[in-house]
Amino acid sequence: MQASSSLYELRRASHAGSWYTANPAELDKELTSYLSSASQFPLPEGAKLKGLIGPHAGFSYSGPTAAWAYINIPPSHYKRVFLLGPSHHAYLSTCALTKSQYYQTPLGNIEIDREVTEQLHAGGGFQYMSQKVDEQEHSLEMHAPFIRKAFGEGVKLVPIMVGNLNAKSEQEYGERLAPYLADDQNIFIVSSDFCHWGSNFDYYHKEQGLEVHQSVEKLDRQGMQLIEDTNPEGFEEYLQKTDNTICGRHPIAVFLNAVRSYSLATFGSKVSDKIKTKFVKYAQSNKAMKKTDSSVSYASSITYFQ
Score class of each variant (00 low, 15 high):
Met1His: 11
Gln2His: 10
Ser5His: 14
Leu10His: 14
Ala16Trp: 07
Trp19Lys: 13
Ala22Asn: 15
Ala22Thr: 10
Pro24Ile: 14
Leu27Arg: 11
Asp28Asn: 14
Thr32Met: 06
Tyr34His: 11
Gln40Tyr: 07
Pro44Glu: 10
Glu45Met: 01
Leu49Ala: 04
Leu49Ile: 04
Ile53His: 09
Gly54Ser: 15
His56Val: 09
Ala57Phe: 09
Phe59Lys: 01
Ser60Trp: 10
Gly63Val: 03
Ala66Gln: 12
Ala69Gln: 12
Ala69Cys: 05
Ala69Asn: 09
Ala69Lys: 01
Tyr70Glu: 09
Ile71Cys: 14
Tyr78Leu: 09
Lys79Cys: 03
Val81Met: 04
Gly85Pro: 06
Leu92Met: 12
Thr94Met: 02
Lys99His: 13
Ser100Met: 08
Gln101Cys: 11
Ile112His: 13
Ile112Tyr: 08
Leu120Gln: 08
Gly123Arg: 13
Gly124Cys: 04
Tyr128Val: 01
Ser130His: 07
Glu137Val: 07
His138Tyr: 12
Met142Trp: 06
Arg148Asn: 03
Glu153Gln: 08
Gly154Arg: 13
Val155Asn: 05
Val162Ala: 02
Val162Trp: 05
Gly163Ser: 07
Asn164His: 13
Asn164Phe: 02
Leu165Ile: 06
Glu170Thr: 10
Tyr173Ser: 06
Gly174Gln: 12
Glu175Cys: 03
Pro179Thr: 13
Pro179Cys: 09
Tyr180Cys: 07
Asp184Trp: 00
Ile189Leu: 11
Asn200Lys: 14
Asn200Phe: 15
Phe201Met: 03
Lys206Glu: 15
Leu210Ile: 06
Glu211Pro: 02
Val212Asp: 08
His213Arg: 09
Gln222Leu: 11
Asp229Met: 05
Gly234His: 11
Gly234Lys: 05
Phe235Tyr: 15
Phe235Arg: 02
Phe235Met: 04
Phe235Leu: 12
Thr242Tyr: 05
Asp243His: 14
Ala253Phe: 01
Val254Leu: 12
Phe255Met: 12
Ser263Met: 04
Thr266His: 11
Ser269Met: 10
Lys270Tyr: 08
Val271Ser: 08
Ile275Phe: 05
Ile275Gly: 00
Ile275Val: 15
Lys278Phe: 02
Phe279Leu: 03
Val280Gly: 03
Gln284Thr: 03
Gln284Pro: 00
Ser285Ile: 09
Lys290Gly: 01
Thr292Asn: 12
Ser297Thr: 14
Tyr304Leu: 12
Phe305Lys: 04
